[in-house]
Design a protein around this nucleic acid. Structure first.
Lengths: 217, 217
DNA sequence: GTTGATACTACATACTTATGCGGTATCTGC
DNA sequence: GCAGATACCGCATAAGTATGTAGTATCAAC
């Protein structure tokens, strides 16, 4: 049989923490190797944290918040995954947590079964999100169709270079075109995007996801 | 009792389509008011589409693709929600579908129970995503902590104005500061973000989600 | 009461950008 | 063979940007 996955629980409410611990430990493939009431207490146990596969943590903790906790974890134990469990499902908390690096975001009123399946799917590389939370995330992605424009391959690469802050001159050298050639394409880009400055074009490109944030430097 | 929700299924494979129809129709609160083998066939029935609450559709359809179908739906029946069901779970298809406006993305190997609960949660304003798909989406949001910078309120508003393409002069008038005052702040922004051009700053602001795409014009 | 940080104004200058207009080469369809 | 589209080059100019250096006002801390 596979080695059980190591789990640390960080939650300041004793009842909830013990409840989670009991349910999780009941599963053969999951083992709670530590449970703490604060991030500080957990991170003191560096060795324990280092061999942890998954952190299940509250967002509103005394001292270091759950958000800061996630950042700490991603920095020091990058292979571990974090599930935030919380009573809040407002935009701010959700995005803060996900930006910080949490892979899952569950509401505390989840059932024990949901908790266990959330943990398993996070360990398997998934992201357990409650449907409402998922919708918030999805809504950020949605781009109304009329905002879509077709840019040529060349135009896209020039747009990317613009986003990187390169000058016309530099871009020309990169693409083996003259500075005036770059100028020509940029005019076309501006017309298509209906803008008339460099930064506006970059802005629009990000908004319409014409260029992928991940590909920029 | 509440009126049942109206559902249209678009899927070219007869067996799958009939399977879905059977399962969905079995539920009292859900009613399949139409099932089609292509988007074109579905959209011909304009009146039917107009009273549809949810479209359950394949992504790889003959003729108009599922992606185009979603765009059509968001354009013509903006109150309806779309769930894409597909055999693909690669980045490209997922993001295309979500950008187009689908709220859910399920893999075809889901169980009937999952299908029904996906439909219900989409109708309730949620986003049913399989955990793998959710993870892809989450990964896009993650910003490594070291990229974070603290900008003052003033700096953020100037950065937003930069993204909108306003000139120093215009920004000065908006914020009741001199052009040189704006210049002063922009220097500081550049130093903090470690850039040295306007578009690079805008680019970094989007990447680090310092400014919210939704708030820009 | 002076030191230092923060917020802003002022001016100078080299550089970059936005935009208008005219030109050439290549390819496509009639 | 030519009309039209597409992709590029060149030049000119006004406007805008990046950056250095320097001065003032305010507030908080020692």
């Amino acid at each position: 049989m596979e080695k059980a996955s190591n789990i640390i629980i960080i939650e300041d409410n004793n009842y909830i923490r013990n409840g989670w611990k009991t349910f999780v430990d009941f599963e053969d493939d999951l083992e709670v190797i530590g449970d703490f009431g604060s991030c500080e207490a957990a991170f003191e146990q560096n060795k324990l944290c280092a061999k942890t596969d998954l952190f299940l943590m509250d967002i509103g903790l005394p001292g270091m918040s759950g958000i800061e906790g996630v950042q700490h974890i991603k920095m020091h134990y990058p292979d571990a995954v974090c599930i935030m469990a919380t009573v809040f499902d407002d935009d701010k908390h959700v995005f803060e947590a996900l930006k910080a690096g949490a892979v899952g975001y569950m509401l505390k009123n989840m059932s024990p079964e949901e908790l266990i399946s959330a943990i398993r799917s996070a360990l398997r590389g998934g992201s357990p999100l409650t449907p409402n939370v998922a919708r918030m995330v999805i809504d950020v992605l949605y781009v109304p169709a009329d905002g879509q424009v077709e840019l040529s391959r060349r135009e896209k690469s020039i747009l990317e270079a613009l986003a990187k802050g390169h000058s016309y001159n530099q871009i020309g050298k990169q693409l083996f075109l003259s500075t005036d050639g770059i100028r020509y394409h940029i005019r076309n880009i501006y017309t298509k995007l209906q803008v008339n400055s460099r930064s506006e074009a970059v802005s629009k490109a990000f908004q319409n996801r014409i260029i992928n944030p991940d590909t920029i430097s």
